[in-house]
Amino acid sequence: MPESKPRRKTASTAQPASPQAYKPNPVWFKPVMFGLMIIGLFWIITFYISEGRFPVQAWQSWNIVAGFGIAIVGFLMTTRWRS
């Protein structure tokens, strides 16, 4: 019986070209990521509980946009999270 040829490594199974491809995140990354998500949540909760007086009264309903913006930055950081 003939012996089969070994398979070639494809681009998806080959090792990365640079050692930086699997470098883990810095220590501060996770606390900042989760902190931004929590701060955004508390910003929105504070706005609703205080009936628009806090965090920034002059912004009125734009406080909701600010809270969601802060939280979204935290959620976008999750796409770069490596362990």
Rank of each mutant, 00 (worst) to 15 (best):
R7E: 11
I72Y: 15
W81L: 15
W43L: 03
Y22A: 03
Y22M: 04
I45R: 06
P19F: 13
V73M: 11
R7Q: 14
F29D: 06
Q57Y: 12
R7S: 11
P16F: 08
I45M: 13
W59C: 03
G74M: 10
T46W: 06
A58C: 03
F54L: 15
G52F: 09
W81G: 00
Q15M: 06
K23N: 14
I72M: 15
N25L: 09
I39H: 02
R82L: 07
W59N: 02
A66E: 04
G40Y: 02
M1C: 10
T10S: 13
L41P: 00
G52H: 09
Q60F: 04
V65Y: 09
P19K: 11
L41T: 12
S50H: 08
F34L: 14
R53W: 11
Q20G: 10
A66Y: 01
I45T: 10
R80V: 08
I70D: 04
T79P: 03
I44F: 02
P55K: 01
I38Y: 08
Y48N: 11
M33L: 13
N63K: 00
G74T: 09
F54S: 05
P26A: 15
T46Y: 09
Q15N: 02
V56Y: 11
M1D: 10
F34W: 12
N25C: 14
N25A: 13
S50V: 06
M1H: 13
W28H: 14
T13W: 00
K30D: 13
F34P: 02
F42L: 12
K5P: 04
K23G: 05
I64P: 02
V65K: 00
M77N: 11
Q60W: 09
P19M: 13
P16H: 04
K5E: 15
K30S: 12
K5S: 14
E3W: 08
V56G: 06
W81N: 11
G69V: 03
F34D: 06
A66K: 00
P24K: 12
T13P: 00
W81Q: 08
K5V: 10
I44L: 06
R7V: 06
